[in-house]
Amino acid sequence: MKIQIKWIKDPEEHDYPAATSYLSLIYADPEKYVKPLKAAPITEFKAKDIFRAAMLTRLTKDNSHVAENIVKIKKGVRLSPILLVRDSPNGKVIIADGYHRMCAVYTFNEDAVIPCKIV
């Protein structure tokens, strides 16, 4: 039986401060990216393509946050779209918020289409 992964229409408001916190480790001015993320339209990419572009390894269900998202998916709880930043000079994408959600989704279907905002 294939699990249907459900999404809310827009990222939750608390996703933006989380993205700011993470991006502040990489950039001196994270708001340079977060402000445009708030205004960006929702787009979609396959989970496997986001992982390839981000050059990250997938966390397993042993990670508590991934496990929590797996439970949400199984219960039919809608997930928040993820927030992405293009790091063109380094030829990759930064998952500013939603890494654990991405890992949980990938557990079910690497071809799953992920709604996201990207700048």
Rank of each mutant, 00 (worst) to 15 (best):
V71A: 12
V85M: 02
K74F: 06
P17G: 08
D10L: 09
L83E: 01
Y22E: 04
P89E: 13
T43K: 07
L83F: 13
A104G: 08
K48E: 10
P89D: 11
M55N: 14
S24M: 05
A47R: 00
F45H: 09
L79Y: 02
I5W: 00
D87Y: 08
T60K: 12
Y27C: 03
F108C: 04
P81S: 10
L37Q: 08
D15G: 00
S24R: 08
L25Y: 07
A96V: 01
T20A: 14
A19L: 10
C116R: 00
A54N: 03
D10Q: 15
K75Y: 04
I114L: 07
K9T: 09
I73P: 02
K35I: 14
K9E: 15
V113C: 04
V77R: 12
K117W: 07
A47K: 01
K72C: 12
I95F: 07
F51C: 02
K74G: 02
E31C: 00
V119L: 03
R58K: 15
E110L: 09
K6H: 13
A53C: 11
N63A: 05
A54W: 02
P89K: 12
A96L: 06
M55Q: 14
L23K: 00
D10H: 10
I118A: 02
A67E: 05
N109K: 08
A18C: 06
V93I: 14
V66R: 00
K117M: 05
T60M: 07
L59N: 03
G91I: 13
I94E: 02
V77W: 12
I3T: 15
P41S: 10
N63G: 10
F108Q: 03
P81T: 05
I94S: 03
P30Q: 09
P11R: 01
L59Q: 08
H100Q: 10
S88M: 15
I26M: 10
I42P: 03
R86A: 07
T20L: 14
R58D: 04
K74D: 06
Y106L: 11
P81L: 10
D49N: 14
Y99R: 13
K9Q: 15
K38H: 03
H14G: 02
P81N: 09
D62Q: 13
R86W: 03
A53N: 06
F45P: 00
I94W: 02
E13G: 03
I95H: 00
G91A: 11
Y106A: 05
N63S: 13
R101S: 05
A40W: 07
E68R: 15
N69V: 04
S24Y: 04
D111C: 00
G98V: 06
H14R: 10
E13H: 01
F51S: 00
T57W: 05
N109T: 04
N90Q: 12
P89Q: 09
P11Q: 01
L79A: 04
C116I: 01
H100E: 08
N69H: 14
P36F: 05
L84H: 01
K117D: 11
Q4S: 13
